[in-house]
Computed example of a mutant assay.
Amino acid sequence: MSNAPCTVRRATAADVPAIAAVTDAAYRPYIARIGLVPQPMEADHAADVAAGRVYVTGEPDVIGLVVVEARPGHLFLDSIAVHPAAHGQGVGRGLLGFVDEHARGLGLPEVRLYTHVSMVENQRIYPRYGYEIVERRVDGPYDRIHYRKRLSAV
C-alpha cells in the first residue's frame, strides 16, 4: 500500500465499531505518557459519523481514519488515527493528502490541527508535510502544540 494511492471514503454507521477500535489502538499508548486519556478516545464516534466528519481507509477492514470539521477560514483536523499494525505503509501520508484535497474542495485555504506536547512523534511528522507551529497552549488538562498548513490553490 505504500506506493498505492490511499482510497478514502466517508464513514457510515456500520464503521463506528472499527473507528472506535482503530482510535483506541492508535491513542492508547499515549495514556501513560501524557497522564490522561487522549481526547479522541473519548469522542462520540457515532455522532461524528452522523455529522459527516469522519473519513476512513482500508478494505475490508478500516485501518485508518480522519475526523475533520470545516470552520471559518480553515479545515480543522480533529483526529488522525492509523492502526499500529498498518504503520509504515503510507496510510497516514495518504490520509494527510486526503485532508489537503478535502480542504481545497471546500474552498478552505488552510488546515489546522494540534497535538499534545508529549506526542513527540507527531512533532517530527507534521513539519515534514508542510505544517508550521502556530502556538503552544494549554487547553484544560491538555498541553498542546497548534499547527497550520497553508494550502496552495491547486
Score class of each variant (00 low, 15 high):
residue 99 V to G: 05
residue 49 V to S: 11
residue 12 T to A: 14
residue 130 G to S: 05
residue 142 Y to Q: 12
residue 72 P to V: 08
residue 26 A to R: 01
residue 3 N to K: 11
residue 81 A to C: 12
residue 49 V to T: 10
residue 32 A to Y: 01
residue 2 S to I: 14
residue 29 P to R: 04
residue 105 G to M: 07
residue 73 G to H: 09
residue 19 I to S: 03
residue 131 Y to F: 15
residue 90 G to E: 10
residue 145 I to D: 08
residue 2 S to G: 03
residue 14 A to I: 01
residue 31 I to M: 08
residue 118 S to P: 00
residue 59 E to P: 09
residue 36 L to N: 02
residue 63 I to D: 14
residue 14 A to N: 06
residue 20 A to T: 11
residue 117 V to S: 14
residue 128 R to L: 07
residue 44 D to F: 07
residue 21 A to I: 03
residue 108 L to A: 03
residue 43 A to V: 02
residue 146 H to A: 08
residue 35 G to P: 01
residue 89 Q to T: 15
residue 24 D to C: 05
residue 109 P to V: 01
residue 86 A to Q: 03
residue 40 P to A: 08
residue 71 R to M: 15
residue 49 V to Y: 11
residue 25 A to Q: 04
residue 10 R to M: 14
residue 32 A to N: 08
residue 89 Q to D: 12
residue 38 P to K: 02
residue 154 V to E: 12
residue 64 G to I: 06
residue 7 T to M: 10
residue 150 R to G: 14
residue 28 R to E: 05
residue 61 D to C: 12
residue 44 D to K: 10
residue 34 I to D: 02
residue 147 Y to M: 10
residue 97 G to Q: 12
residue 152 S to C: 05
residue 103 A to L: 03
residue 108 L to N: 02
residue 55 Y to A: 10
residue 44 D to Q: 10
residue 32 A to V: 11
residue 128 R to A: 07
residue 147 Y to Q: 11
residue 73 G to T: 04
residue 57 T to H: 08
residue 39 Q to A: 06
residue 144 R to N: 14
residue 129 Y to L: 00
residue 135 E to F: 01
residue 127 P to M: 05
residue 94 G to I: 11
residue 65 L to S: 10
residue 107 G to K: 06
residue 52 G to I: 10
residue 152 S to K: 12
residue 23 T to P: 00
residue 78 D to L: 03
residue 140 G to R: 09
residue 109 P to Q: 04
residue 70 A to G: 14
residue 106 L to H: 06
residue 82 V to G: 05
residue 42 E to W: 02
residue 114 Y to P: 00
residue 139 D to W: 04
residue 36 L to D: 01
residue 16 V to M: 01
residue 65 L to A: 04
residue 84 P to D: 09
residue 18 A to H: 07
residue 5 P to W: 08
residue 105 G to D: 08
residue 69 E to G: 15
residue 18 A to L: 06
residue 20 A to Y: 02
residue 81 A to M: 10
residue 37 V to P: 00
residue 70 A to S: 15
residue 95 L to K: 12
residue 153 A to L: 12
residue 111 V to R: 01
residue 28 R to Q: 07
residue 149 K to R: 15
residue 96 L to T: 09
residue 68 V to Y: 09
residue 120 V to W: 09
residue 36 L to K: 07
residue 148 R to S: 12
residue 43 A to E: 15
residue 32 A to W: 03
residue 96 L to P: 09
residue 9 R to Y: 13
residue 139 D to H: 06
residue 50 A to I: 08
residue 80 I to R: 02
residue 133 I to S: 09
residue 8 V to H: 10
residue 12 T to L: 13
residue 112 R to C: 11
residue 67 V to W: 09
residue 14 A to W: 00
residue 103 A to E: 02
residue 99 V to S: 07
residue 89 Q to E: 15
